[in-house]
């Protein structure tokens, strides 16, 4: 089963929910797909025992074969290639702008001379580790790198069907989030009871509806704000799976990177209940 934890707005407690859920269950594989700001490791403190570079394929031109026909430039939808044709005075050249390349492979497949091969460009790293019974994998996007979805896909390749897979998704509603939550059996949306929380929750729900992923809501700092998130969920038949009230002690634990369930064990039961709720919502 794949459960993703997402939130339209950042900082609502997404990682808190994902981490504590993982710590309350058995047989978990944890995938931190928030590759721009991976944080789950701060709380889980896994022992890392593997690391590999995450790459995307970018083209490289074999000058001996290239006729400077310009086909590759023409097919590249991202303007990542420029071709300078040959003239009497100068030899031609193919320029590749690697940071614009999405690694789609079109230029290689469509070059009539077979002059293009692909080489790997690093965009980040994937680190693998474990924490007790939890298998842990996260991606870390290189600073200055614009493209996170390929890295997210590579982290997601570690999905394992015999386990409960928990995905910590990036915040927002655009491409990286879609890449992370796609294929989940259920998505937990974490929000807070403020106009910001509600506004971003509504967008996140829109995404999940289009992806046809069942979802429920966790309200964090549930006693700070107003009642509009609750009202909204009630009006739209959205299950509120868990409420976590604001508590300075919880905030302090969080700030030190200590998972809630380790110090406030009563929450372990709450997260197990959350899991049961999730399961019953999937069946429905």
């Amino acid at each position: 089963m794949i459960i993703s934890v997402a939130s339209g707005k950042g900082g609502t407690g997404k990682t808190t929910v994902a981490v504590n859920l993982a710590l309350s269950l058995n047989n978990v594989r944890f995938l931190d797909c928030d590759v721009e700001e991976p944080n789950a490791h701060i709380f889980l403190k896994p022992r890392m025992n593997g690391k590999k570079s995450a790459t995307i394929p970018v083209p490289e031109v074999d000058e001996a074969k290239c006729t400077y026909c310009g086909k590759c430039r023409e097919v590249c939808a991202y303007h990542a290639i420029a071709v300078l044709p040959e003239s009497d005075s100068a030899k031609g050249n193919v320029l590749i702008f690697q940071h614009l390349c999405h690694g789609c492979g079109a230029c290689r497949l469509l070059c009539p001379q077979g002059a293009i091969k692909e080489v790997n460009r690093a965009i980040g790293v994937i680190e693998i580790g474990d924490k007790d019974a939890i298998q842990f994998i996260h991606g870390r996007l290189n600073v200055g790198e614009a493209m996170s979805p390929p890295l997210i896909r590579q982290v997601k390749a570690y999905t394992n069907n015999t386990k409960t897979v928990i995905i910590d998704a990036p915040p927002g509603t655009s491409c990286p989030v879609i890449t992370a939550v796609k294929g989940s059996d259920f998505c937990v949306l974490v929000t807070e009871p403020t106009p910001f929380g509600l506004n971003d929750l509504v967008s996140a729900i829109d995404v999940l509806k289009r992806l046809e992923i069942p979802f429920g809501v966790v309200i964090n700092r549930s006693d700070l704000g107003d009642g509009n998130v609750d009202q909204f969920c009630q009006d739209n038949n959205i299950p509120v799976l868990l409420r976590i009230p604001f508590d300075k002690e919880i905030a302090l634990l969080y700030s030190c990177g200590i998972p809630l369930v380790q110090k406030k064990t009563e929450y372990k039961e709450a997260f197990r209940m959350l899991f049961e709720e999730i399961k019953s919502n999937i069946v429905r």
């Binding site: 721009e36 701060i42 600073v143 969080y254 700030s255 030190c256 990177g257």
Partner: peptide, 21 residues
């Protein structure tokens, strides 16, 4: 940022981006 480990971690990363540019 906020005084949490994750806040510091993330602020550090975005600071690197700003420095980079």
């Amino acid at each position: 940022t906020e005084p949490t480990l994750s806040g510091l971690h993330d602020a550090g990363r975005v600071f690197e981006v700003a420095k980079h540019f």
